[in-house]
Structure formats: C-alpha cells, structure tokens
C-alpha cells in the first residue's frame, strides 16, 4: 500500500479526469454505436496529432525553442510517403497485411531518416543561432517554413498528389454496431507504441533521466557533467523525426498530399501544446486525444461550430488551468 501511495500521491487527478469526463459527457447526445465510432475516430485522429505534437513538445520542453518550421517536417513526411507509395505500387495494391505493414514500415523508416537528417541540418544552420530568443526563433522558423514549402513545390509541384492507403488498411470493420476505419485502428496502435516507447525512454533510461532533468534546469545538468548541446541536437532530430512520422500517418489518412498539409496542422499542434502544458509529453497525449475527440464530436453534433470548437476547448482549459493541464516545472 505504501508503494502505491508513493506512486499515486502526486497524480493530478482532476487533470487526469478531464479525458474520461469529456468522453462520457458526449454520450447522452448520441446513441452508443455513433458515440463509439466518433470516440475511436477521435482517438485515432488524436494519436496522429500526438505524433506531430510530441516532437514539438519535446523540443520546446528541453530546448525552450518554438519552431514554426515543424509544419514543414510534417509535410516532408507526407511527401516521403508519396515516394514510397510510388516506388512500391504492387505492395500498395496487395491486400495482405504483410504487404501493408511493409509499405507503412518503409514509409516510416524513410521519414524518420530523412526528416531526422534535415532536422539535424536545420538545428545546426538555423536554430543554434537563436537559442534563448523566442522572438528570433519565431521569425526565423516562419521564414524557414516558407522556404521549405517552396522547396517542396520545387521537388513535388504545387498540385495535390493522391496517396492511397495500403489495401489491407482500407475499409471499415464493425465492432458493437460501430463502423470503425481499419486505418484509424492502425494509427491508434502506432501512436500507442510510440507513446509507450517515448515514456519508456524518458522514464527508464539514463538518457531520459537527463532529458527530464534538462527540462527543469539545463544549467545544473551541465554542472553535473552532461553536454547539453549534444542533447539538444539529439532532441531536435528526434522531434523532427516524430513530425515526419506524423506526416506519413496524416498523409495516408488524408489520401491527398499538398504542400500545405503540414502548416495547416500547426494551429492544432499549438492548441495541443497549450492545452497539454507547453513541453509536457503526457500532457500532449491527453490534449491531442481531447482535440481529436472535440473535432469529431462537434463535427457530428454542431458542424457549424466544428472549426472553432478546439479554440473554445483551449479557452475553457486555460480559464481553469492557465498553464495547461500538465504544466512543466522549470527552475
């Protein structure tokens, strides 16, 4: 019991209750199959949003860097999925799960390598010069985003490019009377795997321990002998690679890839960061699922409100918790 008390005595129960309460609050307004469909769809969308937001959350939490160029890495991930689909048309059309998983794995691996490498270059050439100055970070990364978007147009053109999901991941299955898209289940599974992996690294490894300490007090981490600059590079690369993964999943989900596919998501990504508590990975997960659910519930219940619903959600959370649901402690 003492062990359990130690584990749970610091849990912020009101913040943890937000997600289940929000889900249950929507139930009286629709029948159970519809609620189940919308909830799973919202959770899947939330997981994809989490993939995009978690990288930025990590970058902001440790490095105190706000980068609007994150949207470009999401776009790049989506276009890399296009390239994989073009290179493997036989596997895309193959109805077997092994072929579908192979296509997805290839797209994710390519996105991780390429967006990670571009992220490394971006940190070295641009971000390194603007540490400690949010205004300069915003200005230079907005500039970087514009340049990246133009470069994407140079390579892939300005026209939308269709991107088919692998055959086995198309269509829906019916569970308890609710029709659920197979791809959404895949997105939920991948999101959970990445979330668990991130939490494992952060909670159980020495690297994670240094990152968590660095989020609180970078100077002290340096005084303990850790080279924070190298850690910054690693975190930025990991953050951009996660954006690439989010881009792949979002690209397949949308079915149409445009140069604006990433930048369009940045409003939701920032809403997630603000709701979750800037820099908190766990907060980003809860906030991403909240935003996914809100998008789906409001789209069904009040379509005219759908566009602004997430902003209303953010305002409501901030009125209650001005620093977000799970704010980070910084020294």
């Amino acid at each position: 019991m003492k062990f359990l008390r130690g584990r749970f005595e610091n849990v912020d129960w009101p913040a943890c209750a937000v997600l289940p309460v929000f889900m249950l609050a929507a139930l009286p307004f629709m029948n159970v199959p519809t609620w189940l469909t919308l909830t799973i769809a919202g959770a899947a969308m939330g997981m994809m949003l989490f993939l995009m937001a978690s990288g930025l959350s990590l970058i902001f939490g440790l490095m105190d860097v706000i980068t609007f160029a994150h949207g470009a890495f999401i776009s790049l991930g989506a276009y890399l999925a296009v390239e994989v689909a073009r290179a493997l048309p036989g596997l895309i059309a193959d109805p077997s799960w092994s072929a579908a998983l192979l296509v997805l794995a290839a797209a994710l691996a390519l996105a991780i390598v390429v967006t990670g490498a571009v992220g490394w270059l971006f940190e070295a050439v641009i971000i390194r010069r603007v540490y400690g100055s949010h205004l300069r970070q915003i200005l230079i990364t907005v500039g970087g985003l514009i340049v990246a978007q133009e470069l994407i147009i140079v390579f892939w053109g300005a026209n939308p490019i269709p991107l088919q999901k692998p055959a086995a991941m198309r269509g829906s299955i019916v569970i308890a009377g609710a029709a659920i898209e197979v791809y959404r289940l895949v997105a939920v599974a991948l999101g959970l795997v990445i979330c668990i992996a991130l939490q494992f690294v952060l909670a159980r490894t020495r690297l994670g321990l240094v990152v968590r300490a660095g989020v609180e007090n970078i100077e002290m981490v340096e005084a303990l002998g850790f080279r924070v600059r190298r850690l910054f590079v690693g975190v930025f690369v990991a953050g951009t690679a996660l954006a690439g993964v989010g881009g792949v999943m979002w690209g397949f989900y949308q079915g149409l890839v445009t140069p604006a596919i990433g930048p369009e998501m940045m409003i939701l990504v920032f809403i997630i960061l603000i709701i979750g508590g800037m820099g908190s990975i766990g907060g980003s997960l809860v906030a991403a699922i909240l935003v996914g659910l809100m998008t789906n519930y409001s789209g069904f219940l009040a379509p005219k409100l759908a566009l602004g619903s997430n902003i209303l959600l953010m305002v409501a959370v901030l009125l209650w918790r001005p620093r977000g649901l799970f704010p980070l402690v910084k020294s």
């Binding site: 321990l209 968590r212 300490a213 989020v215 609180e216 007090n217 100077e219 002290m220 340096e222 005084a223 303990l224 002998g225 850790f226 080279r227 924070v228 402690v329 020294s331």
Partner: peptide, 23 residues
Amino acid sequence: ATPDIARMGVAYVPETMGIFSQL
C-alpha cells in the same frame, strides 16, 4: 565548458541548490 570542468572532478552546489524537483 562547464561539463568538462565537472568531469575534471569539480562538483557545484549552487545557491538555489539545483535540485530537480520532479525527479
């Protein structure tokens, strides 16, 4: 650099204590 000085065997306890409160 600070990490190199620390690795040379110098331990620092700042005025603010530098405790990581979340750990």
